[in-house]
């Protein structure tokens, strides 16, 4: 009497399109996990030593004047424009994988930066920004009176 009724199977079959929809939706939701978007360019590495941070990033083939670095308070901004080789007429790219165009990225640092002492170095296509911590912002040792 309570065997696998045909009506139950039917109701499952009816919901298949909905299940497929749900699966598609979930796949779409996770499809770009682990992939970077244009907003994440350039990728950075952050290095720390006592009272300064060093941010390194790979920006191959740029002219130093095309890279803009600015620091306000605890925010570091790296922006710039990467250009492709201008082609003459009749020449076409057979393959174009290198990044071209404008980019901008902001980083929130965990401390106030002494913006006067920020140094940037660009060699071999790797940008190196040294960000010293503002002296007033350094933790102070509190003497305990006995």
């Amino acid at each position: 009497m309570f065997g696998p009724g045909i009506w139950r199977m039917k109701s499952f079959a009816d919901s298949v399109p909905e299940i497929m929809d749900l699966q598609r939706e979930i796949n779409r939701l996770f499809s770009n996990v682990g992939q970077s978007t244009a907003l994440d360019y350039p990728a950075i590495n952050v290095w720390e030593k006592d009272d300064s941070f060093v941010v390194t990033t790979e920006l191959p083939g740029m002219e130093p004047e095309n890279i803009n670095i600015s620091v306000t308070g605890a925010t570091l901004t790296i922006s710039g424009v990467a250009k492709a080789d201008p082609l003459k007429e009749g020449e076409t790219y057979l393959r174009q994988e290198r990044a071209v165009g404008n980019f901008q990225r902001n980083f929130q640092l965990p401390f106030q930066v002494d913006s006067k002492k920020v140094e940037a170095k660009y060699e071999k296509g790797v940008l190196n920004i040294t960000l010293p911590r503002l002296q007033e912002d350094l933790p102070k040792k509190i003497e305990i009176n006995s």
Partner: peptide
């Protein structure tokens, strides 16, 4: 790509 005397605290590449 290490930075001398510094420790890596955050890495994207």
């Amino acid at each position: 790509g290490r930075v001398k005397e510094h420790a890596l605290v955050f890495s994207e590449y």
